[in-house]
Design a protein around this nucleic acid. Sequence first.
DNA 1: TAGCCTCGAGTTCA
DNA 2: CTCGAGGCTA
Length: 672
Amino acid sequence: MSSKATTVDQRAAELRDILDYHLYRYHVLDDPEVSDAEYDRLYDELVALEEANPKLVTPDSPTQRVGAPPSEKFQKVEHLTPMGSLEKVTTDEALEKWHEDVCKRLGTTDVAYVTEPKIDGLSINLIYEDGVFVRGATRGDGLRGEDVTPNLKTIKAISMRMQLAAGERPPPVLEVRGEVYLPLSGFNALNERLIAEGKKPTPNPRNAAAGSLRQKDSTITAQRPLSIWIHGLGVRDGLPVEGHWEALQWLREHGFRANPFAERHETVESVAKACRDWERRRIELDYEIDGIVIKVDSFDQERRLGALHERPRWARAYKWAPMTAQTTLNKIHIRVGRTGALNPWAQLEPVEVGGVTVSQATLHNEEDINRKDIREGDTVIVQRAGDVIPQVVGPVLPHKKGTKPFKMPAKCPLCGAKIVKPEGEAMHRCPNRACPSRGLESLINWVQGPGDIEGVGEQSVRRLWDLGLVRSLPDLYRLTKEQLMELEGYADISATNAIESIAASKNVPFHRVLLGLNIPDVGWVTAQNVARHFENVDRLMGASQEEIEEAEGIGPDRAESIAEWFSDEANRALVDELRSLGLRFEIGDELKPVEGPLTGNTYVITGTLEGYTRDEAAAELEAKGAKVLNSVSGKTTGLIVGEEPGNSKLTKARKLGVPLLSEQDLVELLRG
DNA sequence: TAGCCTCGAGTTCA
DNA sequence: CTCGAGGCTA
């Protein structure tokens, strides 16, 4: 061998070491030492050396992570030790019961546990021979999985070679277990890209990760920012560790990416607390977790406990109520809202999600449905966004035979008018101003919103509508007790109360009436501003678009919308009719700005208060001159936090440094 | 003109 | 509660 060859050989080996080290710093420790450019320079040097001397290429070289040719199919391989699946517990009681069982079998109460986040990803088994990564496989049935080595090599958080201390000899064979996952940031970026390319977004990070790992062409896998958390060992012969806690430390020291939130607990109470704490804290993570994995720490105790039907007695998964679920989408219905917008919604086979039963969910609009490729009859994934509103995330493919892509109807399902879809807008619309949907929906809106009528709810309004007794707001005020008593559910007393409540609603202030007219783009605040500016409806009706713009918070768009509404003859007739029925069309003194000790302060309320409803608290604050808004911003004076506060408001307030006030603080504020 | 603040509108379940 | 977008301000 010539001395030159040796030098090149040495340099290649050196470069492999350096590059491996920097990958480890970057992807395992999240603590890079060199710039990306510097890394690229070293990488290019190695590529050049290897191209000039193909014999230098080793299977574990950093250059071999990408570019393996597409394989025909995945080989089945046997795991060296079986990958058991975890028995789950869902309550503290079940956890406690397991602990008692463990203690009884071991004959001691001296049991320590290790907990760590249960990643919602794909279980993977990695084999290292003499410290070098040689093979990796999916879990499969627990005994045999699919060999996905080329794809795993593209994941930079997987070390191709173990980190060894000077003079340390690697174990001849080591089996390492982990969970491959897609970080949420990467998942969002991937979906944005897919949408931009006109492709279908992936329904959730787990599916995206699974799809990525099972790509036949590993160059595609390489484009997905997959990562891994290593959480355990299979074959571990000869390692100087006596328990899981030590094993995790050992793994970390040898270049494996073990989760930093693993904890060791001396008592089962401490374990239970960790499970509860993480249910709240899980949103802080850049990956999805669906519970906590709990293992008996000591390997000696683990061995004595053994397994039952491939399910280890020494470990449990504490699982929370799932935030997502699968169910069947039975039918897509159309609802026409009070503005004429067509709203498709899904009727679902009822399913538990995050502790409540979900049976319907909005599908927003046609574009959204078809981008997600949702069809009637699909099995779909449902999740609760922001912990509350159910969403259909997407179908679990493939579709059933004979299903068709969704299409909006061409005609309004209620009045038969031709549906329009303005250029650039997402919503389809029924253009018919006389469409029953609009009248009905506005009536429902009126009784539960601006009109604030007790004793007449959505169901009654629908029945009155169907009977033809009430088809407009004026009709409601002409309704008699006798007519109302024709309805099921109304007897003498309830009918009297309802009629009185309807009569009382004639006195709601002008701005509420304005709100009830259903003028597009006019909501609660704009109605107040308009009422305050014009003081009565005649001056408003007589105003030009430019004059309307002078009111606070009104720009060209809203001004146009308002002017257009009042230019419609039917609408002016409606105003006249309501006025003759006795509704108020000029302001009283209710909109006079209140001067008080809290003038200039704005507050936001979240959660449930003990002594007040939120409306009462808001009214009291406003009586002292404060403003009460619905979202936190830099200008918010304080966020009043009740029981079970909304997470988004709380996080935002913390981020912006907005003071958090308790109900106690509120009471003092109102008193002082 | 950008970026923040606010508003409107549509939404589910117990 | 969230989303999108109108309105306002620097």
